[in-house]
Design a protein around this nucleic acid. Sequence first.
DNA 1: ATAATACCCGAACATGCGTTCTTCGTCAAG
DNA 2: CTTGACGAAGAACGCATGTTCGGGTATTAT
Lengths: 225, 225
Amino acid sequence: MMAHKKKGLSERHKKILRFLKSYQKREGYPPTIREIGKATSISSTSVVNYYLDQLEKMGKIERQRKISRGIQLTDLNPLGEMFKIPIAGRIVAGEPIPVPASDFNYFDAEASVDIAHTLLPHPEKDEALFALEVDGDSMIDAMVNDGDIVIMRPTGGEAKNGEMVAVWLPERDETTLKYFYKETNGYRLQPANPTMEPIYIDKSESLEIKGKVVMVIRQIDKTVV
Amino acid sequence: MMAHKKKGLSERHKKILRFLKSYQKREGYPPTIREIGKATSISSTSVVNYYLDQLEKMGKIERQRKISRGIQLTDLNPLGEMFKIPIAGRIVAGEPIPVPASDFNYFDAEASVDIAHTLLPHPEKDEALFALEVDGDSMIDAMVNDGDIVIMRPTGGEAKNGEMVAVWLPERDETTLKYFYKETNGYRLQPANPTMEPIYIDKSESLEIKGKVVMVIRQIDKTVV
DNA sequence: ATAATACCCGAACATGCGTTCTTCGTCAAG
DNA sequence: CTTGACGAAGAACGCATGTTCGGGTATTAT
């Protein structure tokens, strides 16, 4: 009673998909049916075609019939789906935040991080994003470690309530990452860690919002002792 | 005396390069010589071939002769600079950790995250990586928030000292993320947050290491209140 | 047993598509 | 003027490659 039929994707299906991916990666263009056959030990082109049809029906690939090498993996981002974000510098508790100039071009940057735009909330206007590397343990109240990379969007000094922002407090010589709330007599800066207390900034004290934090990335291996 | 020969890259060269890039991005595979001709208003395939030869000599493209659509832009990372990591499930303090089976194939996954391999420490063996979404605030001692995505590498139950691992403690019904240290009478699990105390596991107590944490990603916008 | 699927082959077929050959026009050097 | 390099066409040629078809073998349903 259709025992082994379970859920599509037989070993051959997977083998073909794997080959499609590795070939495309290696050569820069898709393979032919015969090449697929050779790689997956299928001796007949018609059988390869048979499986490709199935994979297309399952939505795993797209085919352009009659076109040489007209096969593409649907879930595989063709290219340009990722972009580089320049690392503008380091963010340290006791120093101002380095912010790239408005005409800053990411081609100038030596260091950068690659982020798939599927990870970013607003892929439209990602041009201006920049990244900072966290220096020191002083931001643990923001759940951010030494060595973490924070990705920020410049906001032009503004911030909405509830946004996580990077703030420079000139009169305290202090940089911090906090959730931002405007209150009647000033501002409340709320740590991400719920066990820690907010700090209150009086209206009279100056406060520079350097950008909104959109993402934090921690690469564990780098910091292993 | 060969005055204007200087810079190569005529208007036609650039037009072809631009078309190659946009076509590849749009279709997922390179164009034919005839398609290039049509797009750049060159009526003869031999002329297109002529220009492609020049571009190849300049190092702008690579050609695989005799192969249909065997053209690739050299500077453009074709793809595979980034890969999908399947989201195997959620990690909750009071539940075991979902770990994909060894034959788990990422093609089966519905949800996934895209990570540039430049972000990963060991790009060689990235096949087995999987991701978990953190559910709840119970991992704040690991500097991990609700909604964060942790990327893990299966370790087969082993762990080296100093590695951050996901651990399941069957006798306590508890899942946790900690730095792992083997000690004489058992194990020490050290929180990432230096202000918090480690927990000690006696030799007699069972402890399952489900994987090593290699990266943590926090997308701030999702969690804004 | 028979029919219906699903899976697999090999070969013939028909295009797809790179290559090459011939021809032509322009322009600058000899 | 002749020559030769360069840019451009168009057509013919021929391998590359997708498609189709007749024919197999299992396994399962009727």
